[in-house]
Amino acid sequence: MYKSILKCSIAAVALSLTSMALHAESYPTKPVRLIVPFPPGGSVDYVARTISQKFSENLGQTIVVDNRGACQISCVLRS
């Protein structure tokens, strides 16, 4: 009795992990936004664009750098 319960629970865990792995392959489906809380043209913008190129190569997804000069934490949370 306990062996059959153990086998069923192992099978259920294996199936759930397999389904999670299949769903994880398509992430991210939309372009990723990198919010920079400084105006464009500065050193922070340069670093953000350099990092976004590496992220784009690793993820295989478009990274959009969104410069928001004088941005507070509230404007980042609204995005």
Rank of each mutant, 00 (worst) to 15 (best):
1 M>Q: 08
1 M>S: 11
1 M>L: 08
1 M>A: 12
3 K>R: 11
3 K>A: 12
4 S>P: 00
4 S>E: 13
6 L>M: 09
6 L>V: 13
7 K>M: 11
7 K>P: 00
8 C>H: 11
10 I>W: 09
11 A>E: 07
12 A>N: 04
14 A>K: 01
14 A>I: 14
17 L>G: 15
17 L>F: 14
17 L>Y: 12
18 T>Y: 06
18 T>F: 13
19 S>M: 12
19 S>P: 00
20 M>N: 12
21 A>P: 00
21 A>S: 14
22 L>P: 01
22 L>M: 13
22 L>S: 11
23 H>I: 12
23 H>F: 15
24 A>V: 03
27 Y>N: 09
28 P>S: 14
32 V>S: 08
33 R>N: 14
34 L>D: 01
34 L>G: 01
35 I>D: 00
37 P>Q: 04
38 F>C: 01
39 P>L: 09
40 P>Y: 00
42 G>Q: 11
43 S>W: 10
43 S>P: 03
46 Y>Q: 15
47 V>C: 02
48 A>M: 07
48 A>N: 04
52 S>L: 04
53 Q>S: 14
54 K>M: 08
55 F>L: 15
58 N>C: 05
59 L>N: 02
59 L>F: 06
60 G>F: 07
63 I>A: 05
63 I>C: 03
64 V>Y: 07
65 V>H: 07
67 N>W: 01
67 N>G: 00
69 G>L: 02
69 G>K: 01
70 A>S: 13
71 C>A: 15
71 C>Y: 00
72 Q>E: 09
72 Q>F: 02
75 C>P: 02
76 V>L: 08
76 V>S: 02
77 L>Y: 06
77 L>D: 09
78 R>F: 06
78 R>I: 04
78 R>A: 15
79 S>E: 15
79 S>Y: 15
